[in-house]
Computed example of a mutant assay.
Amino acid sequence: MKKNKIETEQTIQNIIKIARYHFTEHGYTKAALEDIVKEANLTRGALYHHFQNKKGLFLAVFETVQQEVGEYVEAEAAKSNDIWVQLIRGCRAFLEGAVQSHNQRILLIDGPAVLGWDMFRKMDEKYSMNSLKEQLQLMQEKGLLKPISIEAMTHCLSGAMNEAVLWIADRRDHKEVIDEAMVVLEHLLEGLRK
C-alpha cells in the first residue's frame, strides 16, 4: 500500500512539473491539457482524477510556486541572526523570488486572472503574509516595533511588496530596480521601528 501512495505522489509531482513548464511557456489559456497528459504519459482521465480540471491543476502549480518563493524567503532571512536584518532580507528575497522569469507568468499574470481575486489573496496570505505577520509579531514582542496593529502593518507591507513586484517585473534590470524598491521599503520599515 505504501508503494502505491509513493507512486501516486510521484505521478502528481510529475504532472505539476510538466504543467508548470507549459503554463510558464504558453500561459494558462494556451497551455493544452492534451500536451501535458501526453508528456506525462497519462490519460486525460488520470489527470482529472488528481486535479478535477485545468484550473485545479493550475492551482496546484500556483501553490508550488508560492511555496518555493516562501521557502526562498525563509532561507534568505535565516542567513542572519539579527531579527531586523531577517525582515529586510526576507523582503528582498520575496521581490527576487516573485520576479524570477519562471515564476512571473504564474504568480503575476495568470494567478490573479485564473484563480480570481479571493483565491489569489487566500494563497498570498497562506504562503507570504502569514510569515510576514509572524516576523512582525516577534519583532513587536521584542520591543523593536511601535505598538500599532500587526494586521495593518502586514497588509500594508504585503500590498507594497506585491505592487513593487509588478513594477519590477516590467523593468529590464531587475537587480537595479529591486535595489531601488528596497531603499523605499527600508525607509517604510524604519517608520515602524520603535
Rank of each mutant, 00 (worst) to 15 (best):
E176R: 01
F51Y: 06
G143M: 01
I106L: 04
Q67G: 04
E163T: 11
P112L: 10
E96C: 07
I150N: 03
T154F: 10
H187T: 06
A32I: 01
V99C: 01
A160Q: 05
D179N: 13
L166E: 07
E76K: 13
I6T: 12
D35F: 02
L144S: 08
Q67R: 11
A60W: 11
V114P: 11
K122I: 02
K3M: 05
L192W: 02
K142W: 03
G45N: 13
A19E: 11
W167S: 03
F51N: 12
E96Q: 15
T43G: 15
Q52G: 02
V183K: 14
V61H: 13
E34D: 15
M153F: 05
D179F: 00
C156P: 00
K122S: 07
H22I: 07
H49A: 08
M1C: 00
Q140R: 07
Q137I: 11
S149P: 07
K194A: 11
L107P: 07
G70N: 09
A40T: 09
R89D: 09
D173N: 15
K54N: 15
K30R: 15
E7N: 13
H50A: 09
D35Y: 05
V61K: 12
G111W: 07
A19H: 08
D170R: 13
Y48H: 09
R193P: 03
K5W: 00
N14K: 14
Q67D: 15
D82T: 12
Q66E: 14
Q13A: 12
S101D: 01
Q104L: 10
A78S: 14
T43D: 07
V184E: 04
V165D: 10
K5L: 12
M123T: 14
N4Q: 11
Q104D: 01
Q104Y: 00
F120W: 13
E76W: 02
A169Q: 08
I6R: 15
S101K: 14
V99I: 10
Y28T: 08
K5N: 04
D124F: 09
A113I: 08
D179L: 00
K79V: 04
L115M: 11
A93P: 07
I150P: 01
N41I: 05
T64K: 12
I15D: 03
V69R: 05
V65M: 09
Y72D: 03
M161H: 04
L136G: 03
M119D: 04
K54R: 15
H50G: 02
Y48D: 04
R92S: 12
S80W: 05
K55I: 10
I36E: 08
L87F: 10
T43V: 06
E151W: 05
H26D: 12
D35Q: 15
E176T: 04
K17Y: 10
L108W: 07
R20Y: 08
G27V: 08
E39S: 02
E151N: 14
L192I: 06
N103W: 06
A181I: 00
Q140L: 03
E134C: 01
L157C: 06
F23Y: 14
A60M: 09
I15R: 10
N4G: 04
G90F: 09
D110E: 14
E125A: 11
Y28K: 05
L138M: 05
I88D: 05
V37P: 03
L33S: 00
L59I: 06
I16T: 09
